[in-house]
């Protein structure tokens, strides 16, 4: 329902932050963000408002959670192997189109 995109805070002036979204910058309002925000933080943007400061460690935490979910649900393969396969798959996307022809 609500489009949210994460970006990195470059500067703050009062209740307005300049945020970088991978090469596009936009000013966001900080009126309703859940925690104090400082330069360098990641925030989630929704309709021009920062709605959440994403604490630095929590991205890793979510990834760890996926692994935990997989573990609980039963046997699973070696994660390293999966990682390597993922990277290969991403790198070869173009190659696949041609190979399939």
């Amino acid at each position: 329902m609500c489009l949210g995109v994460p970006g990195k805070v470059l500067a703050i002036e009062g209740l307005v932050a300049t945020v970088d979204f991978f090469g596009v910058r936009k000013e966001l309002r900080l009126d309703i963000v859940d925690e104090p925000v400082t330069v360098g933080d990641y925030v989630l943007n929704h309709v021009g408002y920062a709605i959440r400061r994403i604490p630095p460690g929590e991205v890793q935490e979510t990834l760890a959670l996926f692994e935990q979910i997989l573990d609980v649900s039963g046997a699973r393969e070696d994660l390293m192997a999966a990682d390597v396969r993922g990277e290969i798959a991403a790198g070869q996307a173009t190659a696949t189109v041609r190979a399939k022809a």
Partner: peptide, 11 residues
Amino acid sequence: DPARARELAEA
């Protein structure tokens, strides 16, 4: 990551 996605689908 497509590989992880497949694992999740299998689970």
